[in-house]
C-alpha cells in the first residue's frame, strides 16, 4: 500500500489554477522525485500535502488516513515533514533552537537522542550550535533545515529543492546525505530542478509541466526518455 497517495488534486491561488489534477504516490522505503521547470507546481503540491494550502478537490492520504481538513501542525505529528524551498531556517534563533523547534511535536525525553543523531550526521551544526542560524552559509543552512526536519522523526521526508543555490560540491554532499537518510529507513519525496541528480537516486519519478503530471516512471526510464533528456537534461 502507498504511504502517501495524492489523487487528482486541484489547487488554486485566487483565480490561478496552479495544480491541475495531479496524482502521485510514494511507497514506503522509496525515493520518489518530482521534477519540472519553474512554476510547474512542485512547491504548491508539497505545500498542499503539508496542509499549508487547501486543495479545491482531490484526495490526499498518508498511511491510509485522509489528510483533508487536518491542520499542518498535526500532519507533522503524523510523521510527514517538509524541508521547505529556500530552507527557511529561523534566522534570529540559534542552530540549537532551530533544532528544538524541529522537535516541537516530540516528547521532551526523546529530543536529546535525536539531537545527538543530528549532530552526528552534521558535525558542522554541532560546532555552530550557539550561532544564529541567519549567520550560517547557504550549505550550512540547508543542513540545518534538513537536521531540523529530522528532529521530528519523520516517516516520510519531503525535500523542496535542497540543492538550490549550492556549489556543485555541496550539491553532491546534500545528495549523499539524502541517500544516507534513505538507507537509514526514511522514505523520501524529493522535489528538484537538478533533474539529472534527482533521477539518478530516485526509484520513481514524476515530471510536472504547468500544473500537470506529464510523465512518470522509474528513475532509469525517465533518464532514458528522449523527452526528458531534451527538456530537462540538456539534450
Amino acid at each position: 500500500m502507498a504511504m502517501l497517495k495524492v489523487e487528482d488534486i486541484n489547487v488554486y491561488y485566487g483565480s490561478i489554477h496552479a495544480v491541475r489534477g495531479v496524482s502521485f504516490e510514494v511507497n514506503e522505503g522509496e525515493i520518489v522525485t518530482l521534477i519540472g521547470a519553474n512554476g510547474a507546481g512542485k512547491s504548491t503540491s508539497l505545500n498542499t500535502v503539508s496542509g499549508l494550502l487547501p486543495a479545491k478537490s482531490g484526495k490526499i492520504e498518508f498511511l491510509g488516513r485522509d489528510l483533508h481538513g487536518i491542520a499542518p501542525h498535526r500532519i507533522v505529528g503524523l510523521g510527514l515533514t517538509q524541508v521547505p524551498e529556500g530552507r527557511r531556517v529561523f534566522s534570529q534563533m540559534t542552530v540549537e533552537e532551530n533544532l528544538d523547534m524541529g522537535a516541537y511535536t516530540r516528547a521532551a525525553g526523546e529530543v536529546k537522542d535525536s539531537m545527538a543523531d543530528v549532530y552526528d550526521r552534521f558535525p558542522r551544526l554541532k560546532e555552530r550550535r550557539r550561532q544564529l542560524a541567519g549567520t550560517l552559509s547557504g550549505g550550512e543552512q540547508q543542513m540545518l533545515a534538513m537536521g531540523r526536519a529530522l528532529m521530528s522523526h519523520p516517516k516520510l521526508l519531503m525535500l523542496d529543492e535542497p540543492s538550490m543555490g549550492l556549489a556543485p560540491i555541496l550539491v553532491d554532499q546534500i545528495f549523499d546525505i539524502i541517500k544516507e537518510l534513505h538507507a537509514s529507513g526514511v522514505t523520501v519525496l524529493l522535489v528538484e530542478q537538478n533533474a539529472r541528480m534527482a533521477l539518478s537516486i530516485a526509484d520513481r519519478a514524476y515530471v510536472l509541466e504547468t500544473g500537470k503530471v506529464a510523465l512518470s516512471g522509474t528513475g532509469a526510464e525517465l533518464m532514458a526518455s528522449d523527452k526528458v533528456r531534451e527538456a530537462y537534461l540538456g539534450g
Binding site: 503539508s50 496542509g51 499549508l52 491542520a71 499542518p72 501542525h73 498535526r74 507533522v76 505529528g77 515533514t81 517538509q82 521547505p84 527557511r88 531556517v89 529561523f90 534566522s91 534570529q92 534563533m93 533552537e97 528544538d100 523547534m101 524541529g102 516541537y104 511535536t105 531540523r148 526536519a149 521530528s152
Partner: peptide, 23 residues
C-alpha cells in the same frame, strides 16, 4: 518551549507550522 515557538512564529509562520507548531 512556548516562548521559543512564539519567536519562531513571529519570524516565519509557515515554517513554524512545518515544525508542528500550532500557530
Amino acid at each position: 518551549k512556548m516562548g521559543k515557538a512564539m519567536r519562531a512564529v513571529s519570524e516565519d509562520k509557515g515554517a513554524a507550522q512545518l515544525m508542528g507548531i500550532n500557530v
